[in-house]
Design a protein around this nucleic acid. Sequence first.
DNA 1: TGCCGGAGTTGACGGTGTCAACCTATCTTC
DNA 2: GAAGATAGGTTGACACCGTCAACTCCGGCA
Lengths: 212, 212
Amino acid sequence: MPSKSRSSGRRGGTRRRAYHHGDLRQALLDAALDLLHAGGTEALTLRAVARAVGVSQTAPYRHFADRRALVAGVAEQAFARMGDVITSAVRTGDPGLPALRRGLAAYVAFAHEHPAEYRVMFGPELARRQDLSQLGDAAVGVFSLLHDGIERLQHAGLLGNGDSALMAITAWATLHGLVMLSLDGQTAVTGRDLTELVDAATGHLLKGMGAD
Amino acid sequence: MPSKSRSSGRRGGTRRRAYHHGDLRQALLDAALDLLHAGGTEALTLRAVARAVGVSQTAPYRHFADRRALVAGVAEQAFARMGDVITSAVRTGDPGLPALRRGLAAYVAFAHEHPAEYRVMFGPELARRQDLSQLGDAAVGVFSLLHDGIERLQHAGLLGNGDSALMAITAWATLHGLVMLSLDGQTAVTGRDLTELVDAATGHLLKGMGAD
DNA sequence: TGCCGGAGTTGACGGTGTCAACCTATCTTC
DNA sequence: GAAGATAGGTTGACACCGTCAACTCCGGCA
């Protein structure tokens, strides 16, 4: 199935409106994203998605095993978009430590600009995702950007020679925690400017990791 | 049914089973905690709680405005317990930096040993809690333990002289992120031993904050 | 004694995820 | 080109949920 690609449709006209709908799977994912933006996770109901697309309430079951699978699909595409944003932020500008900082900032910016999607990506409904291997891969993909970047900086002598995986996990956890506490409205965090917090945190981190 | 009750009831016998139930509010909170342990957040339904206590499904509305308020009550008591655990960990042993490390470790240990409660404390259902001031206070209370501890260490010359609030937030975010990623089963994190991760992270942090 | 109001109940409404049974349009095969 | 086969979609139902309105009950107060 070709699928994916938002705005797919109309390929050549040979099979416009193929089957009954064309590409219901992606249409459902798009509608789900809209609902998510409009009303958060709790508005992301299977029936509402079907309604938005104009199909019956059980039609989604031909493409997703259950509600969780639909949400996982949304999260998976969000991970992909986030990966693109980070990659392009890293590439445009000076390499080395500044590139790492741009990547970290891009991570936080994405989360801050798309809070509902970020919540879905890391929310409890998809936790313990051993049955959702595709989603796991998508998450690992984003993490690898960070891990690989740190290793490159170590080889260039710009970071200390600790366990690179431990460093990457620590950095990820710090950013993730910052984003989550901010999104959840923890008073001590929400009052602050998020970029200021990120700067301070990455400063502490990089110093602790031997970027002198 | 004498209920489970964390040993509340039986006060003097003067008003045993006062009103209709005695202390339905706390009984509901206790039952909610049991359900939470047994089946996670999604098992924590208003009707199931009422059923467990043996009252009608709308009885809880005499004590909680809605489901969210009940969940907030559970989270509030969890914050209090967590605060106690941390405080006692800090107090038993050498003061100074080791005490801070014990406190941080106790935070993670609590989360790791009571994952369902931790999820509720920071879960999305209670996010944006401006209407739940009691809960906000409980969370601030725990954060203050960290913030005050850092300030004391600064005065003792054991930590650098940066903005103590920024330091506390960074440390909190790192631990929170670590816990969350671990609980959510992020493969890069779950494979590791959590205490090893905490040691590495706090090591980087304290070094970055000028604890030489 | 009587009544008042807080505590708890009954019954209902609209919403949800999901299942079983059914229909139908398209693809495959002779 | 007719005949199945089957992926894609529909209908109707079930059990569960949060919440509301209207009620009943019972302890404390006048």
